[in-house]
Design a protein around this nucleic acid. Sequence first.
DNA 1: AGTTCGATCGCCT
DNA 2: GGCGATCGAACTG
Length: 187
Amino acid sequence: MRALPRSFYARDTVRVARELLGKIVRHGETSGRIVETEAYLGEGDLAAHSARGVTPRTRVIFGPPGHAYVYLSYGMHCCLNLIAEPEGSAGGVLIRALEPLDGIETMRRRRGMSDVASLASGPGKLTEALGITLRENGADVTRGPIVVCDGGARGVEIGVSARIGITKSADLPLRFFVKGSEFISRR
DNA sequence: AGTTCGATCGCCT
DNA sequence: GGCGATCGAACTG
């Protein structure tokens, strides 16, 4: 399966967040279909790490599209974002949940649990299931080791809501999910 | 140099 | 539904 081209990411962040639903994320032998995303915008989005401009941490968010921004949340979970917008403009899509596809036994071992619907139903869970850590920060997802490709999913119904677990800019409808999926983090 | 505060999860009740 | 775990970035003085 071929990686999505960089041009897919070099667009409006909300559009990229919506269209990432149904796409497949692969890391090594493990992969999953994206069923939940959130858009984090540039200027004016106080919930985004990029809200206060370029710093050593947020450098990746302002960099070229099609790269991974991985950060540590609450000192224990890594979260995966895919960078959107042309270089120099901030925008990222937080991957919040995956439907596990390949390497389910590996995911079970990494997660220490067996229920498939819970293996990757949260941003910290899916990075643990796929073995994604801070080492992958800045990786080019059109090349690897993390690769995103077209899953052939068409015409799924998309649900929209406010983003989860944030306090600033909390009311914006920037969370997107596959309606009815049993693999999302919450309904 | 010290402090504060998270784009969370799982376990407990 | 509440809380503790645990680390790095950014802000303060």
